[in-house]
Write a protein that binds this DNA or RNA. Structure first.
Lengths: 149, 149
DNA sequence: TAACAAAAGATGTTATAACATTTATTATTT
DNA sequence: AAATAATAAATGTTATAACATCTTTTGTTA
């Protein structure tokens, strides 16, 4: 739906200003859909992203720093995020022998299985974008990449 | 920059999947820029949005519910957001005579002045999008609106 | 090598997001 | 009109985001 209608505001300074609001709004829209879809898995968006990074590394370990670097939201607290995942049994931590400051983080079987379950929802996830063709999605991706420079 | 490079991930299921990550990432990118720009004004993104809605209504009052409806992030707590703004002296609240359940919220002089100050940053804000032409921004807006259906 | 700087992660703190529940008031139904 | 439902906002609670600061270990320099 047109952004102006959704937030009942009609005047934007220019297309850039509208784009800023649109990005915030679209994020919120997608986050709500995703949160709803993941509700039964008892996992937050950030935790899901960490798990996916860890699956990408598997069977190798990742350090907390590597996770922080690759996280979508760089500001959040990787250390405690990992601890929360550990408490849920989705990752395990161990000391890194070569550098005792570091901590090796590996996804567990349970974590891998959880991701596998969530993978089943891929179709539903893609359906969020049913109003777009794949080529329109591609255009969006290109322009968003361009935007960030 | 290309999303794949930024988060060091190369495989997405399809363009829709990449778009989802891209929206999260772009949101985070923009939020960080904005937070940084607004740092000196001691105001959060949500509080800023509320104030702008109130300026749009001015000199009329808005109810808490109206604010909730028009908020970008519908889930957050309009009641306490307003209370925080009141504590900063940026809005004032009064009882609504026609319906005593309601609360009238009006932006104060101080609130209006703050927004006016922030308006000075419009040029800097627009500069976030220096990599896009206005027509590219328009394309993005159209496609994002279409995406949400 | 001692002193200092840098890096990795943990920990502390505060504000807020994301729910649910409660209270007060108004609207609707029987 | 009394009972019930619906609405508006406040309040309670928990988890987490967004910082800063601290501790341990490693790296660098004088």
């Amino acid at each position: 739906m047109k952004l102006e209608k959704e937030i009942k505001q009609s005047k934007f300074r220019n297309e850039f200003h509208k784009l800023a609001v649109n990005i915030f709004y679209s994020y919120s829209w997608l986050l709500n859909l995703q949160t709803n879809l993941f509700k039964n898995f008892n996992i937050t968006s950030n935790q899901y992203n960490i798990l996916r990074i860890l699956r990408g590394q598997y069977p190798n370990a990742a350090t907390v720093n590597l996770l922080r670097e690759r996280m979508i939201d760089k500001m959040s607290d990787a250390s405690r995020l990992v601890e929360r995942l550990r408490q849920k049994g989705l990752v395990k931590r161990g000391l890194c022998k070569s550098d005792r400051r570091r901590v090796d983080v590996i996804i567990t079987e349970k974590g891998l299985n959880l991701l596998k379950e969530i993978d089943q929802l891929n179709k539903k996830y893609d359906a969020f974008f049913k109003n777009l063709t794949e080529s329109e999605a591609e255009t969006l991706n290109k322009l968003l990449d361009k935007m960030r420079g």
